[in-house]
Amino acid sequence: MGKSATETGVLAAEMDSDSGKSVLERATTILACFDHDMPGCTLKDLCERTGLPKSTVHRFAERLVEMGWLERLGGEYMIGIGLFEIGNLADRYFRLRMLALPYLHHLSATTRCATQLAVLRGTNVEYLEIVPYRSFQPPSHEGGLMPAYCTALGKAILAFAPPADLERALDVQRVRRTPYTLVSNGMLRDELARIRATGVAIDREESFRGISCVAAGIGGDGRTLAAISACGRSVPFDAPQIANQVRRCAAAIRGRLTATRGNATRSCPRYATSAASAVDHAPPSVSC
């Protein structure tokens, strides 16, 4: 008995999707070659990094160029504007990014610092938005990760994080990135207690020499743990004054987040919006 037209169609699609699996995996492998330290890759770089044959890499890279996901400049491939466009639609932190970005622009102008929005991702902070100030750009990258323990953003989040998140983030091999990195458990826990009391976290060259940063938690969207920061060269860096501005800005964002949380996400009753006290500073936790 012959197969029905539908069955034949399903079979054809199945075979197609089998090859589809490897096609998409190879495309993913090629896209994964690019990072902040290596924004441009020659064909040779891509072959070395993927271990794929030159003809395959060339064919895929050219196809990705046609689609706008890669761009070719001279002899180098780089991530294209098409991928920037699609990536921006990532819904997970979309609302948070939209809501916070105008505040980051304003904070950048008033503090004369670069400003950043980050969330806790496991033991790291992930930078979602970075606003440069003039020609100063912090050493961090949008979409990039840093260990939470050595950044102001990470410490601001961890100070108010649920115990499970905190313990996970502290249970990492800590690296002395600079002479000022807090690597001992005791010092780090004292620091987090200080942050709970003051509502702001300060990074005094703990991750990069010559760079200081002040951060405050903003709660976030649902389960998200997020913070904003102002970051600049250590000289001149008026930490107390910048801390006040960051604290005020974070309180304003928290207020907006709470006010616009609406039906889409769970409300968080123990999360006050008015005063900028240290208690109100707590980001909503998983239990909210």
Binding site: P39, N88, A90, Y93, S135
Partner: peptide, 21 residues
Amino acid sequence: RIGMSLFEAGRLAERRIRLRE
């Protein structure tokens, strides 16, 4: 929904990074 790995890859778009500077 679009995944975070595409957000991360998209923020590497070199033309935007250079224009930003």
